[in-house]
């Protein structure tokens, strides 16, 4: 079984096209159809649930958000190490330890008040990107939404032992918690994200002439920035294209 997983991983990795220069939308027709399906699903389930979630008292929402962020450290820390970010790995481990205990399962971000501020989340897709693996084709997955071949392979890393939370829940490494907790936490993370972006997504949809293309652009820009681990936005910009535009 382990061999099959490794072969699958390498096969998928080869599909990312390490030498490709730009992210191509190789399956645009299919992607657009899936995008429409996701929009229907969003309108029927995610958006209404996110609206109800947003109406909950602020402490409940921030507690849920903190707890989900705390769990995400279990993927961030190994990726910090894989990317050579040892200081961040150490601080994130301390954050995880403090918030999981004193912070009551991560509901309260106590570590922040101790001076350990949250770092940007990391995942296996970002680690592959930082190693020079190009994104390959852009994909839209049912329910999960925008991704690339590289990021999909990265996500599979979580299910192949790279996520301790998955291992002790859905991975059945322990009987204390079950897969319900894992998929429940994934669902909550999605609802929390949707609730935080209710207005901005509605606004973008309303003011886009091609909503699919706008979402694709935003997703790819976001991944580019996260892989660069850049807070300096100027690094993500191609100034050259502006240079030719003279209006003054």
């Amino acid at each position: 079984m382990k061999k099959i997983k490794i072969v699958l991983f390498i096969t998928l990795l080869s599909l990312t096209g390490v030498k490709a220069e730009t992210t191509k939308d190789c399956f645009e027709g299919l992607n657009r159809a899936t995008f429409k399906f996701n929009q229907v699903l969003d309108g029927a389930i995610f958006k209404p649930v996110a609206s109800v979630y947003r109406a909950l008292p602020s402490p409940i929402r921030s507690g849920t958000s903190n707890a989900m962020d705390n769990l995400s450290n279990l993927v961030t820390i190994p990726n910090n190490i894989l990317q050579g970010q040892f200081k961040e790995a150490g601080e994130n481990t301390l954050r995880l330890a403090i918030n999981s205990t004193i912070g009551v399962l991560g509901i309260f971000d106590v570590a922040n008040s101790f001076g350990f501020e949250a770092y940007e989340k990391e995942d296996y897709g970002q680690t592959l990107g930082s190693m020079g693996v190009k994104p390959g084709c852009y994909l839209v997955l049912p329910v999960l939404g925008p991704t690339t071949v590289r990021d999909t392979v990265g996500s599979l890393g979580n299910l192949m032992g790279g996520d301790a939370w998955y291992n002790i829940t859905a991975g059945k490494d322990t009987q204390h918690v079950s897969d319900v907790e894992y998929w429940g936490s994934r669902g909550l993370t999605g609802i929390d994200f949707r609730a935080k972006n209710l207005d901005s997504i509605d606004n973008l949809e309303k003011n886009s002439m091609d909503f699919y293309a706008s979402v694709r652009s935003l997703y790819l820009q976001d991944r580019e920035r996260k892989i660069l681990n850049s807070k300096a936005t100027t690094e993500t910009q191609n100034d050259g294209d502006w240079e030719e535009v003279e209006t003054q």
Binding site: S208, M209, D210, Y212, A213, S214, R216, S217, L218, Q221, D222, R225, S230, K231, T233, T236, Q237, N238, W242
Partner: peptide
């Protein structure tokens, strides 16, 4: 003003890619 970059995402670049797609 030539661009707004919200959480690292450029509105001008998004619009450019949207137009290009059309």
């Amino acid at each position: 003003i030539r661009d707004l970059i919200i959480e690292g995402l450029s509105l001008a670049r998004t619009q450019k890619e949207e137009f290009s797609s059309i």
